[in-house]
Design a protein around this nucleic acid. Structure first.
Length: 286
DNA sequence: ATGCCTGAAGGGTTCAGA
């Protein structure tokens, strides 16, 4: 079973990239984030295209912002939207959807950004991560938490720790909240398979950050013990970040058990990364 | 070539993203 997660940064804008990607990589389960579409609009936009490819769909969206989904052709049962007792800002937002697919409890999450350390939104982010931890703790071990965690687990997951000083995504409280989740027994499957590689999943659109490979790894697949034992491959699909009209995030892909049949692309990530240019690099300023 | 920001809402710009 191939499971993928992708922050598409507007599914409406990403249709010309999403559908060919599904046909090429042939994932059995896809977690999407930042769909930015209400459920009815999602069904109208993609219902036929997805059912034609054999996918059932669970969406939890809202107009304009946020929005998550799970596409599955491995079954889609017991759908839950949102986090029970999760915090809002001030109202609950569409940031989590859960379903059982092929015997695995799949949670697609879009963790709040946090905006700036110490802000209300930052506190909201920490509270949201705590609620996610409680939710996972109450569920089965056969679980994968997939999505945009908006936290880089370690300094190895950003292009330059100094560039992020004073910014979100790297602060100790955020990393502690992520660790608390992992302490439930979840494995960061991409890092486990590529312990010493430079692997990022997000690159800012601005200033040629992708082309210099100045990014961060914030999109994760966290697998419960029994699922982690089944992992045969885990990688980030950088190809999907190239070309015309990409999302600013790349998909993360994991294969459980035997890799699926057919031409479904590499089962290991392309090992080469671009040449890193000399000179101090900073984050683009907004 | 991987090539220097994008999406959405609402209104002629502003906010959000990370």
């Amino acid at each position: 079973m191939r499971i993928a997660t992708w922050n598409v940064n507007s599914v409406k804008q990403r249709v010309p990239r999403l559908l060919p990607w599904l046909d090429e990589r042939k994932p059995d389960v896809v977690c999407l984030q930042e769909t930015k579409l209400a459920d009815e609009s999602f069904a109208e936009l993609l219902g036929d295209e997805l059912s034609g490819r054999g996918y059932e769909v669970a969406t939890h969206g809202e107009a304009a912002w946020n929005g998550v989904a799970i596409l599955s052709r491995a079954g889609l049962e017991d759908v839950e939207r949102g986090l029970p007792d999760g915090p809002g800002f001030p109202h609950p937002e569409a940031r989590a959807v859960t379903a059982t697919c092929g015997g695995v409890r799949v949670i697609s999450v879009y963790v709040p950004n946090g905006r700036s350390p110490g802000s209300d939104h930052y506190e909201y982010k920490l509270a949201w991560l705590a609620a996610l931890r409680d939710y996972v703790a109450a569920g089965p071990e056969e679980v994968v938490v997939c999505g945009d965690m908006n936290v880089a687990p370690t300094d190895d997951d950003v292009f330059d720790p100094e560039a992020y000083e004073g910014h979100t995504h790297v602060t100790p409280p955020e990393r502690d909240a992520l660790k608390a989740l992992q302490r439930l027994g979840l494995h960061d499957v991409v890092r486990d398979h590529w312990p010493n590689e430079r692997v990022f999943s997000y690159w800012d659109y601005r200033a040629g950050m992708f082309h210099q490979d100045l990014g961060m790894r914030i999109d994760l697949i966290l697998a419960g013990g029994p699922v982690a034992k089944r992992v045969k491959a885990a990688w980030i699909d950088r190809q999907a970040r190239k070309g015309k009209g990409p999302s600013d995030h790349a998909p993360v892909i994991v294969d459980l058990d035997e890799a699926p049949d057919g031409d479904i692309g590499p089962v290991v990530p392309p090992p080469s990364n671009p040449v890193i240019r000399r000179g101090k690099k900073k984050l683009p300023q907004s």
